[in-house]
Design a protein around this nucleic acid. Structure first.
Length: 257
DNA sequence: GACCAGGTATTGC
DNA sequence: GCAATACATGGT
């Protein structure tokens, strides 16, 4: 049996379309009419195994038990973070949706990011057969004006989102597949509005490049406080997984070391 | 009303 | 290369 906490995995800042009623967690994932919805309580998670889309989305193919064991053996602080929320997994999101969402995330807070993504979907996305709005396609966004994007509250990020949609329409995401992480990262950063942190988030949460180690304000704090002089390379080829445990721990744990 | 939010581009050394 | 600053918007 796999370990997965819906609450911790969905609310740890990887994705921006989820909600919670009573004990039921709901995720909305995917673009336009390919959007899918999952509503589940924690004690029903075994159902995910029977669905190929959600199995992939929640990364059931990766052995997190083994990773957490290795992390815990390597470092005591990381062990504490793993034990704080052991049910976190790295999501496999749509690449464009992840990239665009993290462009929106810059100098922004999670609640407002979620609102913007929801408005974007309802105004510019297409519905599936059940009436759920998918995240708008890059083609749709590339065809909008900056002014139209500003109206949903994107602020100065409107032009960044537009630049990103145009790059994706030019085949950026397909071109990344052949590249190593360093080249892929540099390619993403050619977009005006995509820096190192957003590039790493897109690669980690959208392209499943588990060695990427996004450095936001929280992770900078973790590194200076607990890993002085070190960087993401210290955590090895699955640094991105370690990053997410540390990120969630530093933001939510009252009792730090 | 100042300050902040999973940053980035620009400018100036 | 690294430090300082503006950037839209909505919430404390």
């Amino acid at each position: 049996m796999f370990e997965l906490s819906l609450k911790d995995t969905l609310s740890c800042g990887q994705c921006f379309r989820f909600s919670n009623n009573e004990n039921v967690w709901t995720v909305i994932a995917g673009v336009d009419e390919n959007v899918r919805t999952l509503s589940l309580s924690q004690d029903e998670i075994c159902k995910i195994e029977q669905d190929s889309f959600w199995s992939d989305y929640f990364d059931l193919q990766t052995d997190y038990e083994s990773l957490k064991q290795q992390f815990s053996k390597k470092d005591d602080v990381l062990k504490t973070a793993c034990e704080f929320a052991p049910g976190i997994r790295i999501l496999n999101q749509n690449k464009w949706e992840a990239l665009c969402s993290f462009v929106i995330s810059q100098n922004n807070n999670i609640k407002r990011i979620m609102g913007i993504v929801q408005r974007m979907s309802e105004q510019f996305g297409k519905q599936n057969s059940r009436g759920v709005y998918g995240f708008p396609s890059s083609r749709t966004i590339a065809g909008l004006s900056e002014e139209q994007l500003r109206q949903i509250g994107l602020g100065f990020r409107a032009s960044y989102v537009l630049n990103t949609a145009r790059a994706v329409e030019d085949g950026l995401l397909e071109s990344l597949e052949l590249l190593d992480v360093t080249d892929a990262r540099n390619e993403l950063m050619k977009i005006k509005g995509v820096g190192s942190k957003v590039a790493d988030c897109a690669l980690l949460f959208g392209c499943h490049r588990l060695e990427c180690f996004p450095m936001d304000v929280w992770m900078k704090r973790v590194m200076t406080d607990y890993f002085p002089g070190k960087d993401g390379k210290y955590f090895g080829p699955y640094a991105g997984v370690a990053q997410q445990y540390l990120f969630h721990w530093i933001r939510n744990s009252k009792e730090q070391i």
